[in-house]
């Protein structure tokens, strides 16, 4: 178990470094002045000069790349060219809000999609399976920001049930929850379908395995077998797909934040694009990448806890 997690951790770190390298090359290895590209057109000459010095832009590219990755890993993402505050502070302040939105969105999708998938798998080709199948296939590719706009039109503008913009009054928990409902619905809806489909396929596969017959031969009820002995195996591939899908989840949350003017990484990055404040924009890319890699590592850990075979096979 220990060595497996160490290996996954090293791999995660490697992926993060390589992703940072890709980002570095796109900013620094393109024709033009790297300082202007990295800081954006609104940076002052003094800021650019400071930047050139800090990044050592006269060094060979390899040295620069290593230095860049080192700085990012240490959380030093430069300064906001407008407010002069460290980018890391801004990004880390916005991060929890985006994580909350993504987790609540995914949470309700799991809470609904998982039982739907289980029921479908236990009654294959029944009417309920068909209905769940059609609905999940219909919602699975819907862009979340579009659902956000439609939700906004229907539930805030027309019906007035939920507030339209912002994240709610600080300190007022009820208000914050009311502000979270529509964005979370928009972020999660496609995932309901996705999870239901994944769970169904995975459950059906495990239900066909031999050990299920053993349990039935000992008179254990089908429902008990499904929930206690099949589901724990069936969720493993679902989890690994969810880990990879984390990127889509975060992208969805980012766009939904913009639709609802909700503070968070998405709004931060969008405002940075509009105000040409590039260090903040690149900083949010870096932090979101790190978030994705972390989420994937946590998924790997969860999988290792669920399936002891994976640990030994590597």
């Amino acid at each position: 178990m220990g060595s497996y997690l160490v290996r996954r951790f090293v791999l995660a770190l490697l992926v993060l470094c390589l992703a940072l390298l890709i980002l570095f090359l796109l900013i620094y290895a393109v024709p033009g002045d790297p300082a202007t590209i990295a800081l954006g057109p609104r940076a002052s000459e003094a800021q650019k000069l400071l930047f050139r010095e800090r990044m050592g832009l006269d060094d060979p590219l390899v040295v620069q790349a290593v230095r860049y990755i080192g700085l990012m890993l240490r959380g030093d993402m430069g300064t906001d060219i407008l407010s002069q505050r460290p980018v890391a502070d801004l990004v880390l302040a916005a991060l929890p809000r985006t994580v909350l939105l993504a987790l609540v969105g995914l949470g309700w999708a799991v809470a609904l999609g998982l039982p739907l998938g289980v029921v479908s798998a236990l009654n294959p080709n029944s009417w309920i399976d068909r209905v769940v199948g059609v609905i999940s296939t219909s919602v699975v590719a819907l862009p979340s920001f579009l659902m956000a706009i439609y939700g906004l039109m229907l539930f805030s503008v027309t019906l007035g049930w939920f507030p339209a913009i912002g994240a709610g009054e600080p300190g007022d928990f009820g208000d914050q929850v009311r502000h979270l409902v529509l964005p979370a619905l928009a972020v999660g809806i496609a995932w309901v379908g996705y999870i239901a489909r994944l769970v169904r396929v995975s459950m059906l596969e495990v239900l066909g395995e031999n050990h299920v017959k053993t349990y039935r031969a000992f008179g254990v009820s089908n429902l008990r077998i499904a929930l206690r002995f099949v589901l724990p195996i069936a969720v493993v591939p679902v989890l690994s797909v969810l880990g990879v899908g984390m990127g889509n989840l975060l992208s969805g949350a980012v766009l939904v934040e913009v639709v609802f003017s909700r503070p968070g990484l998405g709004s931060l990055a969008y405002d940075a694009v509009v105000s040409r404040n590039f260090p903040v924009l690149f900083g949010s890319v870096v932090v979101t990448t790190a978030l994705y890699v972390t989420a994937n590592f946590l998924t790997d850990t969860a999988i290792a806890l669920l399936d002891p075979r994976i640990v030994e096979e590597g």
Partner: peptide
């Protein structure tokens, strides 16, 4: 394979915003 995983690790929409900005 590693490069592939790294590319997937970049957050699509934010990464796209960065590319469009550059």
């Amino acid at each position: 394979v590693l490069l592939n995983d790294s590319l997937k690790a970049l957050p699509l929409i934010l990464f796209a915003l960065a590319l469009v900005s550059i």
